[in-house]
Amino acid sequence: MPSRSDDHRPRPRATGRVTLDDVAREAGVSRITASRALRGQRSVDPSLARRVRDAAQRLGYVPDPAARALASARSSHVIVLVPLLSNTLFVDLLEAVQATLMPAGFQTLIGITHYDRDEEEQLLRSYMAHRPAGLLVTGFDRSEASRRLIAASGVPCVHLMETTDAAGVYSVGFSQTAAGRAITEHLLARRRQRIAFVAAQLDPRVMQRAEGYRQALRAAGLYDARRELLNPQCSSIALGAQLFEQLMAQQPDTDGVFFCNDDLAQGGLLAALRLGVKVPHKVAVAGFNDLPGSDQMWPPLTTVHTPRREIGAAAAGMLLALMRGEPVAKPCVDVGYSIVVRGST
């Protein structure tokens, strides 16, 4: 199709806003074809879709989300609720979600729950008014009112970071309990018998890791509740150093420590250096999540690698299928985890 000169391009309306009709005329297609192409629907021929996108880019077209929601009873927005953005784990996950959804014509509305059920409920009530196309939520721990909101909305929903076999529930994650058990078994294999569990935040996934720790030690006949150090404060390097010092003062014969998150473990390693506690000779140290910097600690930190980018991409892909009305072969996807063995154990 010959290109149009600037003099013959559609003029914007009095409002100054380029409309979908303008894009359709510029691309030489019907309005409904232009709409479907910009929403990323697969029913549109790829060459037509490319022509529509090129026309929209030339004209500087920006879709009106309110009009789209009214026309379709759904917007092009996907709500993503995560506990924090101060944790690299959730930043990695969000980047993968956005990289999957944007090419399909969907934008993300991010809500931060701060591990607070009431705050999550408020976010859901606010965001549901925008008629979202889909919903990604972290885990399964939420208020009954939030569960009812999600169920009554009819909005496709996928759960992140955990798995379930419950009928009609979609999830992408891994077993936090199994991962906690596996890293504790690794410490046991290193002939550690007085292993402590040090945790902060104490959200449901942390407590599932704690359960895995208990299972491994009970199976070995070595569980000692006095070696659990649980602190409700937010996880941080500074808190990890503080808790390691507290542990060494209270249980000086401890020969292994499983920190529930890598930032705590990083702080523990720094405190060990200050205290002259040799790692791993006197105390083996393990973390969880394989966060940036863990491989640069001294000694480098042994940890559980959690595939958060894979979780984000797989969950967003599953949600795309649900939003398009396509069948989902596996409603529960377990992406697994891996133990990364380094010098600290």
Rank of each mutant, 00 (worst) to 15 (best):
Tyr170His: 13
Leu160Pro: 03
Ile112Phe: 01
His159Gly: 07
Thr113Lys: 02
Leu136Ala: 06
Arg117Gln: 14
Arg194Pro: 04
Thr113Met: 00
Arg190Ser: 11
Arg147Asn: 12
Gly168Cys: 08
His114Arg: 15
Phe197Gln: 05
Thr184Gln: 04
Glu185His: 06
Gly168Gln: 08
Ser153His: 00
Thr164Arg: 11
Ser126Ala: 13
His186Ala: 03
Arg181Cys: 08
Ala189Thr: 13
Ile112Pro: 06
Ala133Tyr: 02
Glu144Ala: 12
Arg125Gly: 09
Arg148Gln: 15
Thr113Glu: 02
Val169Trp: 00
Gln193Lys: 11
Val137Trp: 03
Ala129Asn: 12
Ala152Ser: 14
Ala179Lys: 10
Leu123Phe: 14
Tyr170Gln: 09
Ser175Thr: 00
Arg191Ala: 15
Gly134Ala: 04
Arg142Val: 05
Leu136Asp: 01
Arg192Ser: 03
Val198Ala: 10
Gln176Thr: 10
Val155Leu: 09
Ala178Ile: 00
Leu188Thr: 02
Ala133Pro: 11
Gln201Lys: 09
Thr163Glu: 00
Asp116Tyr: 12
Ile150Pro: 11
Glu162Val: 02
Ser126Arg: 13
Ile195Ser: 09
Ala189Trp: 04
Ala178His: 07
Tyr115Gln: 14
Gln201His: 15
Thr177His: 13
Ala129Thr: 14
Gln201Arg: 07
Glu185Met: 05
Ile150Cys: 08
Val169Glu: 03
Ala145Lys: 11
Ala196Glu: 01
Ala145Leu: 11
Ser153Leu: 12
Arg147Thr: 02
Ala167Ile: 09
Ile150Asp: 00
Val172Asn: 06
Cys157Asp: 00
Ala199Leu: 05
His186Cys: 04
Met128Arg: 06
Ala133His: 06
Phe174Asp: 01
Ile195Ala: 00
Arg194Val: 07
Arg125Val: 11
Val155Glu: 01
Val198Leu: 09
Gly134Asp: 06
Ser126Gly: 08
Ile183His: 00
Glu162Asp: 14
Tyr115Pro: 04
Arg192Trp: 02
Thr138Gln: 12
Val169Thr: 12
Arg142Pro: 04
Ala145Tyr: 01
Glu121Thr: 15
Ala182Lys: 03
Ser175Glu: 06
Thr163Ile: 15
Pro156Ser: 06
Met161Thr: 11
Val172Ala: 06
Leu136Cys: 10
Tyr127Phe: 15
Leu188His: 08
Leu135Cys: 07
Gln176Met: 08
Pro156Gly: 07
Asp165Trp: 11
Arg194Lys: 10
Ala199Ser: 12
Gln122Phe: 12
Phe140Asp: 06
Thr184His: 03
Leu135His: 03
Pro156His: 07
Gln176Ala: 09
Ala200Leu: 06
Thr164Asp: 14
Ala200Val: 03
His186Val: 09
Ala166Ser: 10
Arg125Tyr: 03
Ala182Leu: 13
Val169Gly: 02
Ala179Phe: 02
Arg194Ile: 11
Gly168Ala: 05
Leu149Glu: 03
Val155His: 05
Ile112Ser: 08
His159Thr: 01
Ser126Asp: 11
Glu119Tyr: 10
Ala145Ser: 09
Glu119Lys: 09
Arg194His: 13
Glu120Asn: 02
Cys157Asn: 08
Val169Ile: 14
Leu149Ile: 04
Val137Gln: 01
